[in-house]
Amino acid sequence: MKVKEYYEEHQRALLGLSSFIFLAAAWELLLTYVVPLNPFFFTKPSLIAIAFKEQALGGNLWHNLAISSRAFIWGFSFSVVIGIPLGAVMGWRRRVEYALDPFLTALYASPLVAIAPLLIVVFGVGLLGKAVLVFLLAVFPFIFNTFAGVKSADPLLINVVRSFGGKERDLYLKVILPSTLPYIAAGTRLAIGRGLVGIIVGEFYAASEGIGFAISQAGDTYRLPEMFVGIIVLSLVAVLLTEVMRKLEITLAPWRAGEEIR
């Protein structure tokens, strides 16, 4: 009974973890007993683990992580600070929407990573170039989701607040902001993914440090286990950030706790 209860309570984590372990084990066994291991083209979890230990203890892992994080945090922060207000104004003022929408939609739809080389030429290979790339990629989900959130505010609820004597400020605070929060949260999750792509692409093109640089360098020199260390660290960061967002959403929007938010 105890086991079953424990399982039911942590079902989500347990199932996720066991599928992960299963895959890793299958990979390890496959490359140990079935496919002959050619270290130039294949690697396996045990080798990655060893490389991870080396990198973490003596290598540049933490330094690279810090370098990449800094660029990410700068670019991401700016995308929040600029994207959310811009989206809100577009949602609330139709003229701003009409003026900016074609331009922003075109930018959002185009593969911005294609202009990464240009950005690197203009802003350099350091922090600035990468932060700009992260910003450009991450800002659009904030703009468009905030915009959609403001638009989604129910006119009935706006009328309710007006009917009880609410002024324009009350409409923003009591209706529009709460209806927009879930949209912003969803936008944040998109933006995290896009921002991470920005970092990696920036560091692929030209850089001398950072997780993206480490991945591309290890790849170029056929050091597969080290390459996978970078990739895994990256996905861990992505999972961690997404998980934090999920928790944040539940705290910020308890009225939606009943619905499963993804």
Binding site: L156, L157, N159, V160, S163, K174, V175, P178, S179, A253, W255
Partner: peptide
Amino acid sequence: MVFQEFGLLPW
């Protein structure tokens, strides 16, 4: 007013 469609703030 008591609204026909309730008009309760979901949050």
